[in-house]
Amino acid sequence: MKPKHMDTNIPALQLDKVRKVYGTDDQEVVALDDVSLTVGSDEMMLLVGPSGSGKTTLLTVAGALLRPTSGSVRVGGVEITDLGDRQLAEFRRDQVGFVFQSVNLVPFLTARENLLVVRQFGGSRIDAAAKQRADQLLDELGLGGRGASLPSQLSGGQKQRVAIGRALMNDPSLVLVDEPTSALDSELGKQVMDLLRREIKGRGVAAIIVTHDDRVLEYADRIVRIVDGALETAADGSSTD
């Protein structure tokens, strides 16, 4: 299934001279330094870099969680820097999928309900179509029999898969994944990355995956390195923009 609004000619993400500065005057810290980046509509990009280099800040800016100090951020062709808090919340709900480092499933909801919850935020009724989609996603993620399980009844890998399903539930145009393998062993990490790649590429969705894990680099269409808030040319020579 293609994302609901996707036009393959429109990049999933365009950052233009994005600058993010924390603090003021002499306490100023530049987290993003004139970052320009384009992610194609079905591109799977890995963002690597040392701790404190600005990976997380870039992810939060791209995900409409943080407004940049200056510059332009367009997701699916929509300029989001001028949106208000309410509009940003709606935008995140409809256009962006998140897979958090610590998974962060709602502990008292079942796997299926964790997928459906993003529909509720928009005030939508959980209709048969939504339930069918959640069940279908769980099936595709190999969790067909675990829809009624609470997160505490799932393994680490299964939780990660539920989180991926939640990110895809609303057919986003951009999926942002934060350290997906950091808490998993090699085998589980490989399974999760295989699954991510399959789901992302199979749906024609763009993804930015932040990682420290060298083992997952092979899954990327492109690798972008960030150091001290600035992007560098990737090891394979591809441009960062």
């Binding site: 995900g63 969680l65 309410r86 919340a89 709606e90 995140r92 709900r93 409809d94 998140f98 958090f100 962060n104 709602v106 502990p107 919850v117 993003v118 935020f121 928009g122 939640r166």
Partner: peptide, 15 residues
């Protein structure tokens, strides 16, 4: 932490 995640996923303060 939970509310931050829910807000990130699109939940509004009013909700």
């Amino acid at each position: 932490d939970l509310y931050a995640v829910l807000k990130a996923l699109g939940a509004r303060t009013g909700y």
